[in-house]
Amino acid sequence: MSKFLEVRNLNVSFPTEDGMVRASNGVTYSVGLGETLAIVGESGSGKSVSNLAVMGLHNPTRTEISGEAILNLKSGSVDVISADTETVRKLRGKEMAMIFQDPMSALHPFFSIGDQIAEAWHLYNKGSKADGKNKALEMLELVGIPDAAKRINDFPHQFSGGMRQRAMIAMALVNNPSLLIADEPTTALDVTVQSQILSLLKELQIKFNMAIILITHDLGVVAEFADRICVMYGGRIVEDGTVEDIFYQPKHPYTLGLLNSVPRITAGTSHRLKAIPGQPPSLINLPKGCSFAPRCEYTSKVAGGKCSTEVPTLDVKNAGHLSRCFLSTESLNNLVKDKA
């Protein structure tokens, strides 16, 4: 069965004076209705860039995009990468919506919250101004804005950070889209507000049977929220699996490193966090082989120094669990055990 969104072999590059910035290289992922896919990676790993390409939000004159991103709509399938801009525009807001990291800068400072939500509704619905306002009010109540009838005429600067993100969610969902891309939706928020926003998203996902792509660098957020996880590094997906797969049987040294750098409440106070040494690769000059090789502690264990000459493929290591590493599951497990 095909999923709602299927991204296949997506490449996004930006030509610059210094050379081609390859922000996303052969990225493949999919997400079904009612499902949550988390895309995890550090800044510059290509997670936002890939999803902005799905939304068609890159400037076409400054971006080179190839590959496929197929939306399986009720009315048929559309490849949003090859479709013309007008077709994709009509899908934005209606079939796929996006919320962003900083809701303060993502909301227009000169228009009231209610107007901004109503504007999105009017785009795909016929109705009077009053209808639009009622719809905006309904959405604000749905996302849990207290005293929504009074706050509807407020401007973004009069809202708190969490409420702004709620308003963004209300605006994104006003036309009942099937796919919501949430680009680090909680990064700019307080920890307590973060969990409120995430549970709101979960609640709305069930209500609307939406596919959600959650872009984040926070593994803690992912664990309780996602069904599947894609780990990205240097513009490539390096590991792809269920939450259990990724957290309990990571099969890529980068994922291992990420997990080691997260504090655990059970680890005790004497346990020091382990950072991954080195810097993320330049996207202009990606390493010839595995992009993680320069920072990987296991490269010497791979026969023939393949890590620095050949790009490993994203192989199935277990049912539904893929990893981009030359090491077999057993040898990686043994190496980790030896170290511990």
Partner: peptide
């Protein structure tokens, strides 16, 4: 290049 213009585009506005 402001974020809110990207939001406007993400809404599907022309």
């Amino acid at each position: 290049s402001e974020d809110y213009i990207r939001t406007a585009r993400a809404k599907g506005l022309t």
